[in-house]
């Protein structure tokens, strides 16, 4: 298996190097997407299937499509940047030395890291947490504050984007490929089924709110870019969109208050109710993540007057 690892490491290095060093923005973005896929394989090799699922959906798919959509908004003069200014720099020798120096120092530091490990602590707490899969239990119960803050960060990102400019309408793909919206709508039930599958599986195996949200987000982006859902752009549905975006965060706060009321401590849920709250939070979080990933593609605030 060391050969496979070596090949994966070389592929990751090659795609990352091409992404960073070669001229041409489109080529760089394509290499970044390939890099994301290679990283997903590396996560599988390192026995982190949850991370692999999220990386394959978000790192390779959503980030790459986001970058390509943004590049598509730029004129042609901006897309191809000049190789002399931005390709391989002239001061190649000092930079190589610098890279090697940093690498050596980092490698030494990494190998000398102590490995604390919280395996046993998590295993003892797992029965009380309300979920059987350790990563889901950690995300939603044992270290739920991390997830809360992370949802907040995403909501702040959406707020920042909305404060910048009006939403940019999607490219009119359906103009020269008329059946595309139909195809996207036709595929959407499959995305919904996979979403439910990941949510259902997340309680006892790799899966859960993050991969599910990423997957449904990818399906939603497909709908959005083919112009199949007009309602996100319309002013009438703006309020509904805001409430849906905030649903995950709101449910987290309600859970915190419920814990405070029932046991006197924040998030202090009685263990027999924890499972139900986890399911509710998981669904709401996944839906919020889906919608936030979709609103990233608007690059601005929807619902302006025409």
């Amino acid at each position: 298996m060391l050969v496979v690892d070596l090949l994966l490491a070389l592929a990751a290095l090659a795609t990352a190097g091409q992404c960073l060093l070669l001229p041409g923005l489109f080529r760089a973005v394509a290499n970044l997407m390939a890099f994301g896929l290679v990283m997903a394989l590396i996560w599988v090799r390192l026995e982190a299937p949850d991370v692999a699922l999220a990386e394959a959906a978000i790192g390779a798919g959503i980030t790459g499509a986001l970058l390509l959509t943004a590049l598509g908004q730029l004129p042609a003069s901006q897309r191809d940047i000049q190789p002399a200014r931005d390709g391989l720099p002239r001061r190649i020798i000092p930079i190589t030395i610098l890279v090697l120096l940093i690498t050596g120092m980092l490698w030494a530091a990494i190998l000398g890291l102590p490995k604390p490990g919280l395996v046993e602590e998590v295993a003892t707490l797992l029965p009380e947490s309300g979920a059987e899969h350790a990563v889901t239990a950690l995300l939603l119960n044992l270290r739920g504050i991390d997830t809360l803050l992370e949802i907040t960060v995403m909501l702040c990102a959406v707020a920042t984007i909305w404060s910048l400019q009006q939403a940019i309408p999607p490219p009119t793909l359906s103009h020269y490929y008329p059946g595309l919206p139909t195809l996207a709508r036709w595929l959407h039930p499959l995305f919904l089924l996979m979403f439910s599958y990941f949510l259902w599986q997340g309680t006892h195996a790799p899966g859960g709110a993050f991969p599910a949200g990423a997957l449904l987000g990818a399906g939603g982006v497909l709908l959005l870019l083919t112009g199949s859902i007009a309602w996100m752009y319309q002013r009438a549905y703006n309020l509904l969109l805001r409430w849906l975006l905030a649903a995950g965060l709101l449910l987290f706060l309600i859970t915190a208050l419920a814990g405070l009321l029932m046991t006197g401590t924040l998030y202090g849920l009685p263990p027999r109710l924890a499972g139900y709250f986890i399911i509710a939070i998981e669904v709401a979080t996944a839906l919020s993540i889906t919608l936030m990933l979709m609103t990233f593609y608007l690059f601005g605030r929807p619902g302006a007057q025409q």
């Binding site: 042609a76 793909l173 020269y176 490929y177 595309l180 195809l183 595929l187 499959l190």
Partner: peptide, 21 residues
């Protein structure tokens, strides 16, 4: 089947986009 669908649709989209730009 899904990969078949994705690759044939993607090929047409890439081709028409290359034809335009």
């Amino acid at each position: 089947g899904l990969i078949l669908l994705a690759s044939s649709t993607g090929a047409t989209l890439i081709a028409s986009s290359a034809l335009r730009h």
